[in-house]
């Protein structure tokens, strides 16, 4: 299999941030809501180092967390009335 320089850089970066103990995607999901509710986007509290480390190695969980934070911070999830006017998909 041909591997490009860009892919190697990504691999080395993944190896660099690897730690001996990591949480998996299910454990991340259990912690994600608490992380969003209890921290600001730029904060790195000790309690959530495992969450932040997982985000460095898992693009999927990282993407989902950004969507969750955007929803919660904009309160876009809270308005019942908006449901009535929701555009049809």
């Amino acid at each position: 299999m041909q591997v490009t320089r860009k892919e190697l850089i990504e691999l080395v970066e993944l190896v660099r941030v690897t730690t001996s103990e990591e949480i998996d995607c299910s454990q991340f999901l259990e912690r994600a809501a608490a992380y969003v509710d209890k921290t600001d986007p730029d904060e790195v509290p000790d309690d959530f180092v495992d969450v932040l480390q997982h985000m460095l190695v898992c693009k999927e969980c990282c993407e989902e967390l950004h969507v969750l934070r955007a929803l919660v911070s904009s309160r876009a999830d809270e308005c019942d009335e908006c449901d009535e006017h929701e555009h049809e998909h």
Binding site: E30, A33, K38, E60, E63, E64, V67, L68, D77
Partner: peptide, 22 residues
């Protein structure tokens, strides 16, 4: 499995986002 560390709605939203994105 909800441990009450977050608001219930945030916890439920995380699950919904996981389902849709997966």
């Amino acid at each position: 499995t909800f441990r009450g560390e977050a608001a219930f709605r945030t916890w439920a939203a995380a699950i919904a986002i996981r389902v849709a994105f997966a």
